[in-house]
């Protein structure tokens, strides 16, 4: 039964606070569990570790994500991590940051965790001096977009 997979997704969504100031390159799933904060990457690592501990295969994924079903986000557009769980003989996308299925995701890479899918791995000195990401509908969104509800009642 996939109750566990859904419960894990919900637990991380509800118990780990999102914030760019909370992350660091060496932050692990255990760190995220202890500190209860992180960015999307940290949240997915914790959800993945929980899934694997419960014998549910889980892999890390990253890609573009349009701001359609997600809560409004004032920060600049960035790539977005998610993860996939193997249930019923197929992989399913899950997102522990947003806690609900998304609209407009474009997969770029998959791996065991973020190590496997770094957008840049540099063998020498470099300095990032510009970084912009675009993910937006070509045409304006329809006015009557149905809300994508959380798959559970949010705890108070």
């Amino acid at each position: 039964m996939c109750d566990k997979a859904l419960a894990i997704n919900r637990w991380v969504f509800e118990n780990v606070g999102f914030g760019y100031r909370f992350t660091r390159v060496n932050k692990t799933a255990l760190d995220t569990y202890v500190e209860r904060t992180g960015v999307c990457r940290d949240m997915m690592h914790l959800a993945i570790a929980f899934c694997r501990a419960m014998n549910i295969p889980a892999r890390y994924a990253t890609g573009y994500l349009a701001d359609i079903a997600a809560d409004p986000d004032p920060t600049p557009m960035d790539f977005s991590a998610f993860y996939e769980v193997f249930l019923g003989n197929r992989w399913w996308p899950m997102d522990a940051r947003h806690g609900r299925p998304q609209i407009g995701r474009v997969l770029m890479a998959r791996g065991r965790d973020a190590t496997d899918v770094a957008l840049l791995t540099s063998f020498g000195r470099h300095k990032l001096t510009k970084f912009t990401v675009i993910t937006e509908p070509v045409a304006p969104l329809p006015l009557a977009m149905p809300p994508v509800e959380l798959p559970f009642a949010r705890s108070a």
Binding site: M108, A109, L119, F123, R125, T129, F131, E136
Partner: peptide, 27 residues
Amino acid sequence: SLRVGYDMQFDVPGPSPTAMVLMLFAH
């Protein structure tokens, strides 16, 4: 239809060349 893309810039100060692996394609 989603417009997707990016614009990135990296300075390589040297003195040696820097090899980079980019994972920036659609899967």
